[in-house]
Amino acid sequence: MTALGILYPGHFADDDYPRIEQLLGSDIRVDLVHTEIGEDAHRVDALRQMGSPERLATGLQELRLSGAEAVVWASSSGSFVQGFDGAHEQVRGLALAAGLPASSTSFGFVHAAAEIGARRIAVGATYPDDVAALFADFLRAGGLEVAGVLGSRSGTAAEVAGWGEDELFALARAADTPDADALFLPDTALHTVAHIPALEKELGKPVLTANQVTVWEALRLADRRVNAPELGALFTKEPIVQV
C-alpha cells in the first residue's frame, strides 16, 4: 500500500480526492488533511498567509502517523504567489517539518508538463488577472512558454467551488489557444476530476487540473506510476525522455 499525504486548504473541492483514489484502482491511499485557509480571498496577501509555515504545519503529525510516503501542499495559488524561489523554500520547509519528500501543486504542474512533453501552455485561471499573471510567471521560471492566460472575476475559493460543468467548460474553451500543447486549470477549489476526459476530447489536447496534478505529483515523489485513463492523458502517457 502506498499512502499519499495531501495538505488541502479548507473544504472546497476536497471531494475530488476520494474520486481520484477510486479511479486509481490500485493499492494507493490518498490521505487528506485540511489546513486553515484564513481569509478566503484571491488576493496576494491572503494567499501568502494561507501558505505560511504555521498553517502548513497543521496536520503534519496526522500525516506522519498515517504512514504517508510523501506530502503535497494542495494549493496552486498558496505556492506560486511566493515566487519560484519562495515556493522552493516553502516545500523545503515542509519536507523538513514532515520528514517526508514534499512538493506543491504549482511544482506539480511544471513536472507534469515535462511528463507529457508539453512546452507551450495555455492557462485558464479562476483568479483575478494579477494573481493569474503570477502563475504565468511561475511557469516561465520553470522553463515553460505561456501561450495565453485568462483570468476570472472570481474573488473567493467558495465561489469557485460552486462552479458546475458549464462554467468549467466555458473557462477551458475561452482559455485554450491553438498553439498551446496543453491547457492548465490551476485551482484546487475547482471541481474538475469528473470532467477531464471530456475536456481533453473537446479541446484535442491534454488538460491538467490542480487536484489531478496534486495526486500525480505525490505519486511521483513516492516513485509510483499508475495507468488511469479516466484521469486523462497525464495518467496514460509514457514518460517523455528528455534529450
Rank of each mutant, 00 (worst) to 15 (best):
Y8C: 05
Y8P: 04
P9D: 11
D15Y: 13
D16Y: 04
Y17G: 08
I20K: 12
I20F: 12
I20Q: 09
L23E: 14
V30L: 10
V30Q: 07
D31H: 13
L32N: 01
V33L: 04
V33Y: 06
E39T: 15
E39Q: 15
E39G: 00
H42G: 02
R43F: 01
A46K: 13
R48Y: 09
L63I: 00
L65F: 05
S66M: 07
G67W: 08
E69Y: 04
W73I: 10
W73E: 08
A74I: 07
S77F: 03
V81H: 02
F84G: 00
D85H: 03
G86E: 05
A87D: 10
H88T: 03
E89V: 06
L94D: 11
L96N: 05
L96C: 06
A97E: 04
G99W: 07
L100D: 09
S103E: 03
S104L: 00
T105E: 14
G108C: 01
V110G: 02
A112F: 06
A114H: 15
A114P: 02
E115I: 11
I121W: 09
G124Y: 11
A125F: 07
P128L: 09
P128H: 07
D130I: 03
A132C: 08
A132N: 07
A133N: 11
F135P: 08
D137H: 09
L139F: 08
G143M: 08
G148H: 15
G148Y: 09
G148W: 06
L150V: 07
S152Y: 04
S152R: 04
T156M: 08
A157Q: 13
V160D: 05
V160P: 05
A161H: 03
G162M: 02
W163M: 02
A170V: 03
L171P: 00
L171Y: 02
L171K: 06
T177D: 00
A180M: 02
A180V: 09
D181I: 11
A182L: 10
A182N: 12
L185A: 01
L185Y: 03
T188L: 00
T188G: 04
A189F: 05
A189W: 12
A194P: 07
H195W: 08
H195C: 10
I196N: 02
P197I: 15
A198L: 08
L199E: 09
L199G: 01
E200T: 14
L203Y: 09
V207N: 12
Q212C: 03
V215T: 15
A218K: 15
A222G: 10
R225H: 12
V226E: 13
L231T: 15
L231C: 12
A233H: 15
T236V: 10
E238M: 11
V241H: 13
